[in-house]
Write a protein that binds this DNA or RNA. Structure first.
Length: 367
DNA sequence: AACAGCACCAACCGCCCCGGA
DNA sequence: CTCCGGGGCGGTTGGTGCTGT
């Protein structure tokens, strides 16, 4: 295992690639495509195994690779995605064009992990370290855990995840719990559901919008998008509410009052100043919400039928554009109200199709 | 200047899944 | 059904350069 059989057949080079080797591989793939990787070394005149060629191509020679340092936006997105996907680097990489899984993995291990720790966040659970440490070390997963056939494609929030699983290192079973979005969705008076540019928040399963089985994704204007940043380093930071939030509801401010608050209960906590008083509402995640079987959600044929049965036995309604617009019209937040005036226009149509696209991208499916 | 420790990252290793024979 | 090879993934390693003493 590991080194393929081809590697034993002849003395093959290992280690760093020389510029000449790179050129040979690049020329070969440019002219002929890679085809069967095991035949590439021979055809390209390389003393390497096919696996090594594949890796070199994917991680270094591919023309669509983005070079250079990761932007803060990319780092934030990686944190967000890691919170949902765990160490599924290839899936995370799939959402960052031009970046490879190896690159992201290295960034995570060398930089992001450290930053999170410095800010009191456990990089495995995305929870405050103090909370994680309340469980003994022996309960924590070991680093040499290998994938088993049963978890190979298992979501971090597998259906079998229990609270204990979570503290043993599994992702929490309640997705919205993780980000604190649930409360935002729940508070229908605010008419506020949250999505982000990164597609991540729109991955919140509609059926988990508490008290409302109409999908939050479709209820929610795609442009209400607080950007989620790494936890603030100082004691008081504001999390940007995104352009449309600012535009439509300038009085809404999402704040973290201190670092521990930021990931309180494993999600983001938001402070929404009350317009009629000097007080503010602290919006926190709710751990008591029903478990989400994330893996099954990911496998949901979201766009294949009008109704599918969710794990929670709640039907997921695929909204038609008409229904979508009707939902928008019923929303009470300023953004939606402004959208009401544009019902049926190209703009709202566009929002709808973007929502769908966002969902499709999120789940690696296409419309 | 020399050394140690650290950080980064390219590449390897070990394992798994899948499809074809 | 089993076996085998290819492709893919995540974890780990080792080389290199940087920084601090």
């Amino acid at each position: 295992m590991g080194r393929h059989s081809c590697c034993y057949k002849q003395k093959l080079r290992k280690g760093l690639w020389s510029p000449e080797e790179d050129e040979k591989l690049l020329n070969h793939i440019t002219n002929h495509g890679h085809g069967c990787w095991s035949s590439v070394p021979k055809l390209a005149g390389l003393q390497r195994c096919g696996k090594s060629c594949r890796l070199r191509w994917i991680n270094y020679l591919r023309p669509d690779l983005k070079r250079g340092a990761f932007s803060p936006e990319e780092e934030n997105l990686i944190v967000e995605l890691h919170a949902v996907l765990g160490n599924r680097w290839s899936q995370i990489a799939a959402r960052l064009p031009g970046r490879t899984d190896n690159e992201i993995k290295n960034l995570w291990n060398s930089s992001i992990k450290k930053k999170l720790k410095q800010r009191g966040i456990d990089p495995n659970t995305h929870k405050p370290i103090s909370e994680v440490e309340s469980f003994s070390d022996k309960d924590k997963p070991t680093s040499n855990n290998k994938r088993s056939s049963s978890d190979h494609h298992k979501s971090p929030t597998s259906s079998s995840a229990t609270n204990q699983d979570f503290f043993l290192g599994e992702r929490p079973s309640d997705f919205s719990d993780y980000f604190g979005f649930q409360k935002l969705n729940f508070n229908s008076n605010l008419g506020l559901s949250v999505t982000t540019d990164s597609s991540l928040c729109s991955m919140i399963p509609p059926q988990f919008s508490p008290g409302n089985m109409v999908g939050s994704v479709f209820q929610t204007p795609a442009s209400v998008k607080p950007s989620i940043s790494l936890p603030p380093e100082n004691s008081s930071s504001t999390v940007s509410g995104g352009d449309h939030v600012k535009q439509a509801a300038p009085n809404w401010e999402f704040q973290t009052n201190n670092t521990s608050n930021f990931f309180e209960n494993g999600g983001f906590s938001w402070t929404i100043p009350n317009s009629s008083s000097s007080s503010s509402t602290l919006v926190k995640p709710n751990h008591n919400f029903e478990e989400i079987k994330w893996s099954e959600y990911l496998n949901t044929p979201f766009f294949n039928g009008s109704t599918v049965q969710s794990q929670s036995s709640q039907p997921i309604y695929i909204k038609s554009e008409t229904e979508y617009l009707a939902n928008v019209s019923n929303m009470s937040d300023p953004w939606s109200q402004s959208q009401n005036e544009n019902l049926g226009t190209a703009e709202t149509s566009d929002v709808f199709s973007k929502d769908l696209q966002r969902m499709a991208v999120s789940f690696g499916q296409s419309l």
